[in-house]
Design a protein around this nucleic acid. Structure first.
Lengths: 248, 248
DNA sequence: CTAAAACTCCGTACCGTGTACGAAGTTACG
DNA sequence: CGTAACTTCGTACACGGTACGGAGTTTTAG
């Protein structure tokens, strides 16, 4: 078999088999000392602590007590490892229960993912990637679609609204997580950072040129954003509700 | 002066002076052959074409015909260069005109940023960063706040709704851009990618386990997402409108 | 007028990254 | 029992950001 289907990319069959845990155990050769599962779990631990930047194949190998290149017998490349990490983490979300209405289901979806991203901030650092066709990702997506099917929407709008809610949650989570990630990366806390920039507001910022920002700053509105996630979520779902109402 | 305020981080005064173009020209020494402006513009060109991953100090230097380390006389580090790139690109957005209502203003904000992110996809690849306190970023933010001030909201809700709309736009833009970025990085086009995974849907995917996804796939709903941005934007703004109405 | 100070430019070097390659050892099958 | 298939992993390469310090250039202080 050629080493890669396209430029440097792994075999799709292999990737999907890994995601679905359907990789046939090889018969020949020495028994494997590790499992894909352990590799993925370890990688998640490291990424949880050090972020996606802090995740390196060498670190994973070191923590597992194996040589770096040994990991490549479990996983074709780092990109596939990240896909596995994403799908595995997504498996942590709670699923809707029978009897829940569409709004309740979407709220559950949103809150579960909100928490998920806080537990695993690196999930939002993966950029420019295609959908992960893993069991947990598809499950979660199917559940979310199901909520909107319950609302009686057609297929196009189901997809549209799932995207809307998903996008909302990811966006908010990113905001909420960014400063913590910056702190980890730079070693500068939020307080230190803002304090070091206080001189800007005092000496350089043109208040008259930014009347709205000035007003918001003076009111201390940025420290009042505690319940913003729930607030925005309610507004987003209200938008859907209004769409449903107007339709009739 | 110590080389850095915190671990590896540059002097905030210097960073802000750069953003606002207030870096005092040095008197001693040879005249500079470049300007910060040219460095930033060149970096944006490269990032537009090759993504944030494809942006390296060496490439910028090469294109400008200077040694790599010479860039460090213009910019303290790559992180600051990216901040400058972000603020400069944000300067491209059109601003609201007098007489526009709050909804019109938010639509303009959303559409302008939607297009901005498509012109400069790398903007959405910057993760875990703190706000950029540059002139264009603050200007755009002030304008967005102004739209909601016009709607008669209090400060806390102004911030909340700007975040909401901003998050929506960024989320949608990310989806829209991700596949293009994946193509650039891996050399595999969307068609190729999905074709290479067709076997999954045919042979492995359990339709009965994913009734909603099955329904949506069969209906071809994913190819009907053309106007999804405007659709979701309208729903998001409807949510705000309903909030305003309920308030009275 | 001279010397020092301040500055630009940049070659070299260091450490960290993903991973290709191939040697060495292990197991199962024909 | 040989050989094919497999795991393990040391070495090496290309690429990344950037610290350091030397060489050359301009201004300024004395």
């Amino acid at each position: 078999m050629s080493p890669a289907e396209y430029s440097g990319l792994g075999d799709p069959e292999r990737s999907i088999a890994l995601l679905w845990g359907k990789a046939g155990a090889p018969t020949r050769g020495p028994k494997q000392r590790l499992t894909v599962e352990r590799v993925v779990a370890t990688a998640i631990e490291i990424a949880d602590a050090d972020g996606l930047d802090g995740l390196s194949m060498r670190k994973v190998a070191e923590r597992l007590g194996v040589g770096t290149m040994s990991l490549y017998t479990y996983v074709p490349a780092k990109a596939e490892l990240v896909d596995l990490m994403l799908d595995r983490a997504t498996g942590e979300v709670r699923r809707p229960e029978a009897g829940m209405g569409w709004r309740e289901r979407l709220e559950l979806f949103a809150r579960e993912h909100w928490q998920l991203y806080h537990r695993h901030p690196w999930m939002l650092q993966v950029t420019g990637h295609r959908p992960v066709l893993g069991p947990n990702e598809l499950r979660a997506y199917d559940d979310a679609l199901g909520a909107l099917a319950l609302a009686g929407l057609d297929e196009r709008d189901m997809v549209g609204f799932v995207d809307l809610v998903e996008g909302y949650v990811r966006g908010k989570a990113r905001n909420s997580i960014d400063s913590a990630q910056a702190e980890r990366r730079t070693g500068v806390s939020d307080d230190q950072w803002w304090t070091a920039r206080q001189f800007f507001w005092d000496k350089h910022f043109e208040r008259a040129d930014h009347p709205n920002l000035t007003r918001v700053l003076d009111a201390g509105a940025f420290s009042e954003q505690g319940g913003a996630f729930e607030f925005g979520l309610a507004r987003t779902l209200d938008g859907i509700e209004r769409f449903l109402a107007d339709r009739d």
